[in-house]
């Protein structure tokens, strides 16, 4: 029986979820019977999750639909560090839910962030604090911002010393703020990266980019194997679906049988 360590924020969970089941997303609106069952299971799962006892360190920040389910623990945990590999779009997807829900966000050391893209994601730019050029003091500035803002992004210009990372992690846990590092971060809760892109709309000399599908891979943390989701971007906004609905449905077919057994 795994022991749950109270109040440390590093709770050993009984077992990881068998599959990255979508939290709630447009995929559930599909009109097949499988999809309706998917929605039912999803509702039940979210109910179970909400009834499960959580420690103080287990508070979750809101995320955009579907992204939270990919993350270990089912969402963006307060007081944790996530590492995002080099993609600003993925970064903005991580900020979107919390900012749209009214949180203030901070971005340190990313001077070339596409801010209009951010507002397309639903991020309120007047609550988005930018420190584009912190210079040598990026760690000090990041720490100062995490004191007051619940969600802070920082670009890691060089390698972070494990001692610095541990100090900042302790401060984050105390304040309950979440840090998203753009680059490698020792001891991060999960690492997110984008896989292959699938663009549509652009031809050879004609058209323009209209939609994008890209695979999000979340690895590390308590997840046994990397979880994957499909980030879809088009003129109507952004959403995250399970990578292929078919395989998710197939896994779901087996799920009730296991639970009744």
């Amino acid at each position: 029986m795994p022991e749950v360590i109270p109040r440390s924020g590093i709770a050993v969970r009984p077992a990881p979820e068998p599959a990255p089941v979508p939290h709630r997303g447009p995929a559930s609106a599909r009109t097949t019977t499988g999809a309706s069952r998917l929605g039912q299971v999803q509702a039940l799962q979210s109910r179970i999750r909400s009834m499960q006892k959580r420690g103080l360190g287990e508070r979750l920040l809101p995320t955009m639909p579907g992204l939270g389910a990919l993350l270990p623990g089912g969402g963006l945990r307060c007081g944790a560090v996530y590492s995002v590999e080099s993609s600003h779009t993925l970064l903005l997807a991580m900020l979107a839910g919390a900012s749209a829900a009214g949180s203030w966000c901070g971005v340190v050391g990313v001077p070339d962030l596409g801010l209009e893209c951010a507002s397309e994601f639903g991020i309120a730019t007047d609550r988005l604090v930018l420190v584009p050029r912190p210079g040598e003091k990026w760690l000090t500035v990041t720490a100062a911002l995490t004191d007051v803002l619940p969600l802070v992004v920082t670009r890691v210009p060089t390698k972070v010393l494990p001692a610095d990372a541990a100090r900042l992690a302790a401060r984050l846990r105390q304040r309950g703020s979440t840090l998203i590092a753009l680059g490698e971060w020792p001891g991060s809760e999960a690492r997110l990266s984008l896989g292959e892109n699938n663009w549509s709309g652009l031809g050879l000399g004609h058209g323009h980019l209209t939609a994008r599908e890209v695979v999000i891979t979340v690895s590390g943390g308590s997840l046994g194997r990397p979880a994957q989701g499909l980030l879809r971007l088009d003129a109507h906004g952004a959403r995250v679906d399970p990578p292929d609905v078919e395989s998710a449905l197939r896994r779901l077919e087996q799920l009730p049988a296991q639970s009744t057994a």
Binding site: S87, H88, T89, L91, L92, P111, D112, L113, G114, L115, E116, C117, E120, H208, L209, T210, A211, R212, L233, D234, A235, A238
Partner: peptide
């Protein structure tokens, strides 16, 4: 038009 780029260089 949307989708917009995530990095804007100025």
């Amino acid at each position: 038009p949307a989708p917009l780029p995530g990095s804007v260089f100025a």
